[in-house]
Simulated scan of single mutants.
Amino acid sequence: MAVLKRLNINKFTSEADNDAFIEELKQMWLAWENPSIATNISVDINKDRNDPTRMTAFVSASGTDAINAMNEWSKNVVMPIRNKYQHENIMIDADLVASVSK
């Protein structure tokens, strides 16, 4: 099964907006119910240490069904909330080719 990764980088105009969106995103993620893919997807939400107006959401999904469900949820739920804030967004999709741990 393919492991798909997505990195979303959002830069807001203020730290307060960043903090507010991070809190809303955590609550939305916890409230999202999709039992068919629940064990096939995870998200890490991070606030940049060097730039308090920037955050990242790193999504890992096992299989295309999981990433497609997450895409649909994100488009319908997350993006309208995020778009309340002034922001720049970069989204990177990738197939996992190596996982290195030492």
Rank of each mutant, 00 (worst) to 15 (best):
G63E: 06
L96F: 05
N83A: 14
P52R: 04
N68Q: 14
N50A: 09
V43C: 11
S101T: 13
S60P: 01
S36F: 04
E23P: 04
D95E: 15
S62W: 09
D65E: 13
A66P: 08
N40W: 06
D95P: 06
Q86E: 10
S99M: 12
E88Y: 03
Q27K: 14
M55K: 00
A98E: 12
S14I: 02
D19N: 09
K47F: 01
N71T: 11
A94C: 14
R6Q: 13
I41K: 00
N76W: 08
D17F: 00
R82G: 12
N18A: 11
L25R: 04
A16V: 14
I90W: 05
K11N: 13
T39P: 01
A16P: 02
D51R: 03
S62N: 12
K47E: 00
K102E: 14
E15F: 06
F21N: 00
A69V: 07
F21W: 08
Y85A: 01
V100D: 05
K11M: 08
M55V: 01
K26N: 05
E24N: 15
I92L: 12
A94V: 03
L30N: 10
V77T: 13
S62F: 04
W29F: 11
R82K: 13
N83H: 08
W32M: 13
V59I: 10
G63S: 03
V97A: 11
L30Y: 05
N40K: 13
E24C: 04
I67E: 02
I37G: 03
T64Y: 15
P35S: 04
S62H: 10
T39V: 08
A57S: 14
T64R: 15
A31Q: 15
Q86P: 10
F21V: 03
V43E: 09
N89R: 10
K5Q: 10
E23L: 09
M79L: 13
V43K: 12
S14Q: 02
Q86D: 11
K11I: 05
W29A: 05
E15N: 07
I22F: 10
R54C: 03
D95H: 11
S99E: 14
N10R: 13
N89M: 11
N10V: 09
K84G: 01
D48K: 00
N10A: 14
W32N: 15
N89W: 06
E24D: 07
M55C: 02
I41Y: 01
E15D: 03
A16W: 01
A61H: 02
Y85M: 02
H87Q: 05
I22S: 06
E23H: 06
A38L: 10
W32E: 11
M55P: 00
H87G: 00
S74H: 09
D95I: 06
D51Y: 02
T13D: 07
I90S: 05
A94R: 12
Y85W: 03
K26M: 08
A57W: 06
L96S: 10
M70I: 12
I90H: 05
K11Y: 03
L96H: 04
W73P: 01
D44Y: 07
M55I: 00
F12K: 00
L25S: 07
W73G: 04
L25W: 07
M28P: 02
V78M: 14
I9T: 13
P80M: 12
M79V: 15
L7E: 13
N68P: 07
S60W: 03
R6H: 09
E72V: 04
A57T: 07
D48L: 00
W29E: 06
D95R: 11
V77Q: 15
